[in-house]
Write a protein that binds this DNA or RNA. Structure first.
Lengths: 343, 343
DNA sequence: CTGAAAGCGCTAACAC
DNA sequence: GTGTTAGCGCTTTCAG
C-alpha cells in the first residue's frame, strides 16, 4: 500500500463525472446510463485501476477474509484440511489468513486476537483444546466460528463444529484387529490431545468389551510428554517397547504418524509387521500408503472436513442456520495388519 | 465486522476527552500526560476495545499483511516452506494471506490480483513458472516481492529471490551414485517444471560428463504430462519401466515424491532397492525417511528457505537493500542407494 | 499537553 | 441518471 495509487477520484476527474458515479458504474449499478458506465469501465481499465479492498471493507463492514488457525501447517493432516478450506473459500471470494498455534495456548489466543483486530468475517479453528478462555474470546469477537475436530464439551451456541467420530474410528480399528483373530490388542496414544485421545481410547475399550475381551491396563500406553518438539513419529518409536513387553499382537495407534514411528521401531528391533505384530493407524494421510508395509488405517476425509467446515462458515455468513456435523471415518485395510498366526 | 464495535470515539466520550487524545494515548504518544494515558488504557481494557486494523490500514497505507502463493498447500515441500515463512512473519507482526495456485497460470494471477486489491505489503511466490505477464503484473503492484525457487530468467529489478542450486544438487546426487560404482545412471524428471527440471537434468549430465561417462538419452525419462492431477508419486511409478529397460543401475529422481513412486513400482516388480537398483531423491521431505528403504536424497533446507524469503521481504519493507540468495542443497545418504554389485 | 479538523478510498442516502 | 454530502474508524497536522 506504498505509493499513491489511482482511486475512483482520479477516474472521476478524467471522466468528468463525480466519484460516486464512478463507484456506481464500476459496481454495475442499474441507475447509471450504459454509455457512461462503459466509458468509465474503459477508463478504469486504461488507468489500470485496482479497487482498494481496505477502503471497501471499512465502508461495508465486511472484509471477505476468514482466519484459520491450525496447530501446524507442516502436519500433513492439517495441510490437507487447509487445502480443503481454501478450495471452497477462494471461489466464494474469501481470502484466508493462516496462522499456526503449535499447540500453544498463548499463540492460539494471539492468533485469534489478530483475526479480531483485522475484523475477519469468520474463523476456523482446527484441533484446538478449546478452553473457557477461548470460548470467552470467541464469543466476544461475535463472528461466525467453526471448530474442526476440536476438543470441547461446552459448545457455546455461537460455536459450531465439524468433527470426526473418534470413538467410532477407534472401534473400527480395534474390531478389525479382533476380526483378524487378535485378542491381546494394545492402544498407543498421545497424552497431549486429551479429548480425541480419550475418545479413541474409549472406542478401543468398547470394542474389546463387546468382544468379551477383558481390558488390560498393560495394553494401554499413552505418552505423557507435553513437549511439542517431540513429534508423533518419535512418540510411536519410544512407546512401542512398553506395549511389546505386554505381549500384544496388534496395536491401534492414535494416528498414522505414531503408527509410522511404531513401524520404524519394529524394523529396528527386527519385528516383522504384520507377521509378528499388526499395526493400525488413524487419519489416512498419504504417507501411510508409502511405508512398507502400507498402513492399515482409519481414514478421515480430510479435504471434506476442511470443505464442510468452510461451507458451514459460508452458510453462517449468509445467516443460514447450520447443524454441527460428525463425520464417520472408515477403515482402509492395507498391509500392516494380518491374521494372527496360530501357533 | 458485523455489529457495531466500540471505537476510540466511545472511549473518548467515556473519558471526557477527544478521540485524538485516545488515539495518542493508546499508541503511547509521549505528549499525553501519564495520568490520562493510564486512565484511557484502563478504560479501553474495561470496555474491551479492539482496534480496527482496517481503519488503521486505510490511514497508514500499510496493512501488515503479506500474500503467499504456493502451488499446493498439501504438498509437504510447500507446507514446510510456508511453516518457515509463518515462523518469521508472525513475530514481526505480519499476517499471512495464503493462496494455492495448483500450478495454474490463471489461478496464480488471480491470487496475486487479490493480494493487490487487498493492498498487501509484500508478496511471496513459491515455485511458479513466472511469465512475462507475471512480471508485468507484479511490477504494476509495485510491492516488494520475493520469488522462492521460481522459474524465471528475466529477473526484473523489482523481483528478488531465494532459490536452491538445482544444478549443484543434481550433481551431488549423480556423483554420489558414481562414487558407489554406478555407471549406467538414469534421470527421472517431470515435464511441467521446465526450469528446475532442466537444471537438474544439466547437473546430472554434468556429473556424468565429468566422470567420463558418455550420456545416453535412453537413460533420461521425463514425463510429458501437464496434467496436474497426476501426482509426482504416480509419475515416478509410471516412468520407471522405461528406465529399467535401458538397464540403469541407479536413478536420480526429480524429487522425493517421484522417487517414492519409483520405489513403490520396484516393490511391485520385485526389484530390490538398493540391491538391484539405487534410488536418489531431491528435497528431503520427512516422508523420505519413513519409506523402506529410507530415501537417499539431496536435501533442501525448506524451513530456512521460507524463513530467508520472509526475512528478505522484511528487509525490503524496511527499505534495506537485499541480495538474492542461492542456497546449496546437501546430500543425505540413506538406505536407497548402495554400491553397485560387482558380478 | 489536548482539541479541532482534515483525510485515507470507498459506499450510500439524499437531493435535484 | 448524476452530483453532493456524510461517514466507516483511525492517524496526524495544526492550533492553542
Amino acid at each position: 500500500m506504498n505509493k499513491r495509487r489511482i482511486s475512483i477520484e482520479d477516474i472521476a476527474r478524467r471522466a468528468g463525472v463525480s466519484h460516486s458515479t464512478v463507484s456506481r458504474a464500476l459496481r454495475d449499478n442499474a441507475l447509471i446510463s450504459p454509455k457512461v458506465r462503459e466509458e468509465i469501465k474503459r477508463l478504469a481499465q486504461e488507468m489500470s485501476y485496482v479497487p482498494n479492498a481496505i477502503a471497501q471493507s471499512l465502508q461495508n463492514k465486511r472484509t471477505n477474509t476468514i482466519g484459520v488457525v491450525v496447530t501446524s501447517i507442516a502436519d500433513p493432516f492439517f495441510a490437507e484440511v487447509v487445502e480443503g478450506i481454501e478450495k471452497i473459500a477462494r471461489p466464494a471470494g474469501l481470502s484466508v489468513l493462516l496462522s499456526a498455534s503449535h499447540r500453544n495456548f498463548e499463540q492460539e489466543m494471539a492468533a485469534i486476537d489478530t483475526f479480531h483486530r483485522r475484523r475477519v468475517d469468520g474463523i476456523l479453528v482446527a484441533d484446538s483444546r478449546i478452553s473457557k478462555q477461548h470460548i470467552k474470546q470467541l464469543t466476544q469477537i461475535a463472528v461466525p466460528t467453526v471448530l474442526i475436530n476440536s476438543q470441547t464439551e461446552d459448545q457455546s451456541e455461537i460455536l459450531h463444529s465439524v468433527a470426526i467420530d473418534d470413538r467410532l474410528g477407534a472401534k473400527l480399528a480395534t474390531e478389525h484387529l479382533i476380526s483378524l483373530g487378535h485378542t491381546a490388542i494394545g492402544y498407543l496414544g498421545v497424552g497431549d490431545r486429551s479429548r480425541s485421545n480419550q475418545q479413541r481410547l474409549e472406542g478401543y475399550q468398547m470394542a474389546l468389551t463387546e468382544a468379551g475381551i477383558p481390558p488390560n491396563t498393560d495394553w494401554v500406553s499413552i505418552s505423557d510428554e507435553y513437549d511439542t518438539r517431540t513429534s508423533d513419529v518419535n512418540t510411536g518409536k519410544n512407546m512401542l517397547s512398553k506395549l511389546l513387553s505386554a505381549e500384544v499382537t496388534g496395536i491401534f495407534c492414535y494416528n498414522d504418524m505414531v503408527a509410522v514411528g511404531a513401524l520404524l521401531a519394529c524394523q529396528e528391533l527386527g519385528i516383522l509387521v504384520p507377521r509378528n505384530l499388526s499395526l493400525v493407524g488413524f487419519d489416512g494421510i498419504a504417507l501411510g500408503s508409502y511405508v512398507t508395509p502400507a498402513l492399515t488405517t482409519v481414514s478421515q476425509p480430510m479435504l471434506e472436513i476442511g470443505g464442510y467446515a468452510m461451507q458451514m462458515l459460508l452458510d453462517l455468513l449468509e445467516e443460514k442456520t447450520v447443524e454441527n456435523r460428525v463425520l464417520s471415518p472408515f477403515l482402509v485395510e492395507r498391509g500392516s495388519s494380518a491374521a494372527l498366526l496360530t501357533i
